[in-house]
Simulated assay, not measured.
Amino acid sequence: GPRLLHGFRFEHLSTGAELPTREALAKLPGPLAAVLLELPLRDAGYLLPTWDELSSFAALCQEKEVPLHFDGARLWESAPYLGHGLAEIAGLADTAYVSFYKGLRGLAGAAVAGPEDVVAEVRQWRQRMGGTLFTMQPYAVSALRGLREEVPRMAKYHDYAVGLAERLPDLGIAVFPDPPHTNAFRILVPVGTEVVMSRLLTFAEAEKTVLTPPWRPADVPGWSWSEFTVGSATLDWTIDEAAALLAKVLLTD
C-alpha cells in the first residue's frame, strides 16, 4: 500500500525473532526519511527492548536527525516491562500510534500523537485516503472505556502472563519469550497443527470458550505454535487452573 501510494522504499532493521538495534540502524547507509519501531514486535513473540536499549535507539535517531515513529498498537501493554509511564515512553519518539481495539478491546480505531503541524498533516492524509468516518462517537466511547478500565489492569495482566509462562513448561508446553515481555506470548506444543486445532474446536463447541487463536506449524517438525493473550476473562481462572486447562486441551486426546 504505502509503496504504491507514496513511493516509499523500506529497509528492514531485523527479521524473524530479532529486535531492531542501535547497531543495525547505524549501519544503514544514506539518508533516511523516518524510522519506525513496533512496540512490542509481535512477529517476534511480542518482544521488547530494555528501557536503556530503547533510549539509546531513540538517541541515535536524534543524532541522525531522523524522525522516529512508534507503532505502538500495544504500547499500553508494554509499559509494565519497560518500567516507565506511557507519556515517558511515547516521549522518546517524534510521533506515536496507539490502537483502541486490541488490548483496550474497543470497537475499532486508533490515534496518532505528535507535534501539531505533523498531526494536522496526518489528519489531511487520513481524509485523502478514505479514513475519515461520518461519526467517531461509538469508537470514541468504547476507546474511553478501554482507557478507563483496561489500561490500569495492564500490570496485572503482565504479572499473570509471567506466572503462567513459568508454570506451563512443567506441563509440557513451551513458551517464548521466557519470561513474557507483555501480557501476550507464544506457546508451543509437540503436536501437529491439524490435531491441536481439532482438539481446540472440540473444546470450543462443548464449552463455548475459545482458548487461543489458530495454530501454525512450528520450525521444529511435529510442533505447533500459537499466541496466548492474558485479558480480563483470563483472570476468572487462577494461574494453576489456566495452565492445567491448556495442558488438558492441547496435549490430551
Score class of each variant (00 low, 15 high):
Ser232Leu: 15
Gly16Ile: 01
Leu68Gly: 10
Glu38Cys: 10
Asp236Cys: 10
Gly85Lys: 08
Trp125Lys: 02
Leu246Asn: 06
Glu149Gln: 15
Ala233Met: 10
Phe176Gln: 01
Gln137Cys: 00
Ala90Asn: 04
Gly72Gln: 07
Asn183Pro: 00
Gln137Lys: 01
Tyr101Cys: 09
Gln62His: 13
Tyr101Ala: 13
Pro180Ser: 09
Tyr46Leu: 05
Val162Trp: 07
Pro169Ile: 12
Tyr101Val: 04
Ala120Val: 06
Gln62Ser: 15
Ala33Arg: 15
Leu144Ala: 14
Trp76Val: 14
Gly106Asn: 03
Arg199Glu: 04
Tyr157Glu: 09
Arg128Met: 11
Gly1Glu: 15
Val98Glu: 02
Leu68Glu: 04
Phe185Thr: 06
Gly103Tyr: 02
Gly130Ile: 09
Gly7His: 05
Val112Cys: 07
Val210Leu: 15
Leu211Cys: 12
Leu92Glu: 13
Val189Ala: 14
Leu54Lys: 00
Gly7Val: 02
Asp178Gln: 12
Trp223Ile: 09
Ala247Met: 05
Gly222Trp: 11
Met136Pro: 00
Trp76Arg: 11
Gly222Leu: 14
Arg9Asn: 10
Asp178Ile: 01
Lys156Pro: 00
Val122Trp: 03
Asp43His: 14
Ser99Gln: 06
Thr135Pro: 02
Ala93Tyr: 02
Ala120Tyr: 08
Thr50Glu: 12
Glu116Phe: 00
Thr15Trp: 00
Trp237Ile: 03
